[in-house]
């Protein structure tokens, strides 16, 4: 039972990071139909900023702020430079463009920083753990869970109460009509990218605080998982992204913890097969996006 609870904490912490990443993907996808492969590089950028700030001996809170801001700025620049020229193209064109952006950035990191993994200096407290009741939780896990909850509450408030958030939701349902209502396309799209950069930055801080290292391909695997989480939840649906992220986190952690040793090698295939099984039952995801239902014939 203790082991189960312990693993549940791990699952919430990992699932929360996936949820933040999947949310970032979903915000952009719901508005412009882009599956952004370069989302992972936003994470990597934030990771490198953390590394350099650590080397410069800055306070950790300031490092976090700088890292997250760097990722926001990078996301907005990415949209301005790479995605604006292809904005109205097909989904395949957008996706391939983002793949190319991701590749360019990876090669830049490899050449300008290092091919190898670099250590990140983190405050001592992150690697400590606290005893609550019968079991031990790492501070970094608690931080991850708290940060996820705070971000989700913030996002919910932003999307429901803020003008920019409401504009984004309107644009996600019907971009053409939203523009006719006076919502500026450039502002909404730039805002969506900024938001996705913010989410990627926070996710990067959480990711790095578990691993204390950063490498040029750091963002690739988590974002790959986030894609799958976003599909699992229902592509373009924000609540779906959160649900998919947590479900995927639970599947991964429980498989790692409870699958018999001789099956461990097949952990990833089994986990993905479970996801596919869910999708076969619900092809539009756990919580489908509203735009799917509204298609006019």
């Amino acid at each position: 039972m203790d082991l189960f609870l312990q693993q549940t904490v791990n699952a919430i912490s990992l699932g929360g990071t996936y949820a933040l990443l999947a949310l970032g993907l979903a915000v952009v996808f719901s508005i412009m139909g882009l599956i952004n492969f370069a989302h992972g590089e936003l994470m990597t950028i934030a990771g490198y900023v953390l590394m350099f700030c650590g080397l410069a001996g800055m306070p950790f809170v300031l490092s976090i702020l700088l890292a997250v801001s760097a990722s926001v700025v990078a996301a907005v620049l990415m949209e301005r430079i790479a995605f604006r020229p292809v904005r109205n193209a097909s989904g395949a064109t957008l996706l391939v463009t983002s793949f190319a952006v991701s590749m360019v950035l990876q090669v830049l990191f490899q050449n300008l920083i290092s091919v190898r993994s670099q250590p990140v200096l983190l405050p001592q407290i992150l690697s400590e753990s606290v005893r609550i009741g019968g079991f031990v939780i790492g501070v970094n896990k608690i931080l991850a869970i708290v940060a996820t909850v705070v971000m989700l509450i913030f996002l919910d408030w932003f999307m429901k109460r803020q003008k920019a958030g409401i504009a984004m939701r309107a644009a996600a349902e019907d971009f053409a009509v939203a523009r006719l209502m006076g919502i500026r396309a450039n502002t909404v799209i730039a805002g969506a990218f900024a938001l996705s950069g913010l989410l990627a930055g926070v996710a990067a801080v959480l990711w790095v605080s578990q691993r204390a290292s950063v490498d040029p391909l750091m963002g690739f695997m988590p974002v790959l998982k986030a894609f799958i989480a976003a599909i699992l939840g229902g592509l373009g649906s924000l609540r779906g992204a959160v649900a998919g992220g947590f479900l995927l986190g639970f599947i991964e952690i429980y498989l790692a913890a409870f699958l018999p040793p001789e099956w461990q090698e097949f952990r990833d295939p089994i986990g993905l097969a479970l996801v596919v099984a869910v999708l076969l039952i619900r092809p539009n995801g756990l919580i489908p996006a509203p735009a799917l239902k509204a298609q006019k014939v």
Binding site: F29, G33, I35, G91, L95, L224, F227, I228, A230, I231, L235, E265, F266, R267, D268, P269, L272, A273, V275, V276, L279, P283, N284, G285
Partner: peptide, 19 residues
Amino acid sequence: LDGSAATIATLGLLIIVHG
């Protein structure tokens, strides 16, 4: 599956077979 969901599902296929 349809559209982008199908695309990501094929990505899943790649990872599953690789695994």
